[in-house]
Design a protein around this nucleic acid. Structure first.
Lengths: 233, 233
DNA sequence: ACCTGAACACCGTTCAAGT
DNA sequence: ACCTGAACACCGTTCAAGT
């Protein structure tokens, strides 16, 4: 019972694999899937990897970078459908599918969507996504600036939708915030806030699906209809 | 030197005013203005108010609620210009002005904008803002659902713009993230990501002002041009 | 170069006890 | 009802020292 190492037996922990950025991110993903993003901390992660927190700083600059790396890893699940074969006519449907897939991936991890809103990722999977959206937008007739700025707007909007709707359904505590907003809107007196009062059912109505679809169309229609500043002036 | 209370002299601290939600939020605002949102913690705030953290929980549910209250207080600075007198023709300019004012207020406190992205406020000033945007949108010809969902989209987009652009300019550490993204985009090889490579200058170009204006027009154009789901089907 | 122990300087939240 | 002290259970990050 006092043996220090058993080279053959007892391999419950596979002999502590060497640290590496890849391995660290994989462990972080595991913790997130099982315990949520809020448990993906330097300390908890170090514990999981059987080392001290200080060791992680060789591979990861800080906690924000760690979360960004986890997000990028997850972005590998986004379906970029039909990655290259043409079919020019249905660019809009393809773009919608890509963004829906992106939204669904984020839906699975609301907290990650929240953090993506605030810290854009920069990994390989993110680049692939941006590339794909750019191609589809330009296929749809968007100009240079329209496509470039459009990517940003579309991804941001999809991220925000995921963060909000997903939170609203799952997160135990954050539901309170949404309830507070709904309640505040509902309680708005007709005298002080007539418009809110008049629009009230609609203000909080709509399934995630409906909101997503409408939001997508609003943006695509708007992007194609709105020229970039220097284009004409 | 051992006196317990001096009723007349030494009023550096004005005799510890009674706790109240209002007073707590005011103190929180002060800390934010002087030290940044990240210092607006229950413990720091309690210290400022000369009490223990536990005492604050009588008035504020948790830290998120505290931040939301601070945001709402700040929203009082948003210029709702011309609050009621007609001038129907220029609804678009008025709406633009309101959203610009909103963005500017958030610009002053990037971190707060970040947190607003994630936790919608629900206070009186927020309601006033929603009310105003609703009125202007419907004056512009938006239908019921268009106006209702449009408010959400417009405010979200403005918030995100503020959070991003503001952070990019001021925040010492968060600039790294943006740099990482820019660098990743710039380093995208032409072979693997031809579109990114081709669109590259445009992807990160544009002043905050230009981006804001374009984003606003995209949304307003899109909102007015896109009917709500059940409207026709 | 990589890894570590230990420390520094913090957090949010709860609870039993007081007034 | 409000306020408090004290505790519980955590954090991120740095640094000198080791290998």
């Amino acid at each position: 019972m006092s043996s220090r190492r058993e080279p053959t037996s007892r391999r419950d922990r596979p002999a502590k694999p060497a640290l590496s950025r890849q391995w660290i991110v994989a462990a972080a993903l595991g913790i997130m899937r099982e315990e949520g993003l809020e448990k993906v901390t330097m300390r908890r992660l170090a514990q999981e990897l059987d080392t001290g927190p200080a060791s992680l700083y060789v591979y990861v600059a800080n906690t924000a970078a760690l979360h960004a790396a986890v997000l990028d890893a997850l972005l590998g699940d986004v379906d970029l459908s039909g990655d290259d074969e043409g079919g020019d006519g249905d660019w809009r449907e393809q773009l919608r599918a890509v963004l829906r897939s992106y939204t669904l991936v984020l839906f699975a991890y609301p907290q990650l969507a929240r953090s993506a809103l605030v810290a854009r990722p920069s990994g390989e999977n993110y680049l692939r996504l941006v590339e794909r959206v750019l191609v589809l937008l330009s296929r749809g007739g968007a100009g240079r600036e329209q496509a470039a700025w459009g990517v940003d707007t579309l991804l941001q909007s999809a991220t925000a939708t995921a963060a909000e709707q997903a939170t609203r359904e799952r997160d135990p505590a954050a539901t309170d915030e949404w309830n507070a907003t709904v309640q505040a809107l509902g309680a708005a007196s007709e005298a002080v806030h007539p418009a809110i009062s008049a629009y009230m059912p609609a203000l909080v109505a709509g399934s995630p699906e409906e909101r997503f679809r409408w939001g997508f169309d609003v943006l695509v229609n708007g992007i194609l209809a709105t020229p970039a500043p220097d284009a004409s002036a």
